[in-house]
Design a protein around this nucleic acid. Sequence first.
DNA 1: AGAAGGACCAGTGGTCCGTA
DNA 2: AGAAGGACCAGTGGTCCGTA
Lengths: 255, 255
Amino acid sequence: RRLLLLPPNHLDAISQEGLSEEREAAGSGGEPARKGKQRRGGKSKRKKAKTDEDDDGWGEEEDSSETESGGGGPAAGERQREHPFIVTEPGEVARAKKNGLDYLFHLYEQCREFLLQVQSLAKERGQKCPTKVTNQVFRYAKRTGASYINKPKMRHYVHCYALHCLDEEGSNELRRAFKERGENVGAWRQACYKPLVAMSANHGYDIDALFNAHPRLSIWYVPTKLRQMCHVARSGGGAATSAAGGLPPPPPPMF
Amino acid sequence: RRLLLLPPNHLDAISQEGLSEEREAAGSGGEPARKGKQRRGGKSKRKKAKTDEDDDGWGEEEDSSETESGGGGPAAGERQREHPFIVTEPGEVARAKKNGLDYLFHLYEQCREFLLQVQSLAKERGQKCPTKVTNQVFRYAKRTGASYINKPKMRHYVHCYALHCLDEEGSNELRRAFKERGENVGAWRQACYKPLVAMSANHGYDIDALFNAHPRLSIWYVPTKLRQMCHVARSGGGAATSAAGGLPPPPPPMF
DNA sequence: AGAAGGACCAGTGGTCCGTA
DNA sequence: AGAAGGACCAGTGGTCCGTA
């Protein structure tokens, strides 16, 4: 069951060791390992050879077509990243060093499971219990081996996941349309904002309420840009722009 | 209406100016005002002469009995603080440079009003809306002139306020008993923990649930020590201490 | 060019400890 | 001594920008 959650090309504990070595090597002499703006040098991450259990049918590849370093795993000095996403239809499996959108959404479900575990641990220990996917959860995910999950990525696509949660049909249609047109992931991502703003209008443009009403979505922070777009839509959506003085801003057109 | 919320001895805008001067004087030469561990020197706060409107019947004094500086307001170089709390019965007004516990609890109600204002502003502006009394709320309170409200003080007595909210009768009895015995505020404060832990037992020792069930209490963070005490009570409250290996810790005796 | 993510940064929750 | 609160600090939310 757990293995089904692994990504097609995840990094493993070996990478963690690589990181550790890097960290230790940095503090030469034992001083508190200054973290100046320049801490980008050391390249020592490694990728492990893919094992059979890792093939979970989610995307597959990254094996024989390993060109950059001849034989086995990549040489030291290569920085391993997740493959970029491409716009895929629902159910479509991405090929050729790409990841599909089903996999993207799957990462959000994984984060939710990590949150549930962190919550469960916190309760056992009598500690504060997070209600959202926090830094603590990302750290836990990484420690648990899910090194392919990171905060910037998850935050970047939250609103895409939101559309998937709130209007799966609409989300699916959008994916098909953008794949058809050959648009890249960035364009699809941008297009996910509009239907969400439209949905928020039915709730007085309260995007937080919309997120909180959905149990799998409520654990995610509302992205700043989406909140701003809903605010602008509420304020500027009407015919005329209020020319009156400062105080009570445009009333929300509720339902 | 607003004036009724002011404390018996609040500081005012003058104090803020004093602080500003202090801050500017610190950065001698224009460098980024280093904030080393030593930033404790400058004394430049001032207290303003009390005006008639300030007499709101909450505690009164600090007027003619001003001994330390002869005539009018205190001289520059005096650091003004709120008067310390003393244990008072419900309805009892503290005298002689002391503040009573009704006033303490009143501060919590004031913070709630400041939170409501911050929330209202945030919603108007389409910004994140705090659900708790955060740093932002304390900053807003201070800016609005409530310089007598500060975070360490409010956090220090949160559990006392919790008892007042959740069991006003019990809280009142405790106050009477501790006043009778001539106990100081610290002793009364310590005594407020126990009844709360006992109440939490009825909710599976889930102190967060207890806080969240009360609308005026739910806006306050659960104090670390109270959470720990509830955890200890849940774990060690039973007859025997589990000698078994690590994993599933003591089950909560729920109701 | 398009995209993934290490690392930074302003402001947070939490509370110590120099102060009165 | 008992108590109020300025100021510190580790770890947060947020995302930029050097990287691949």
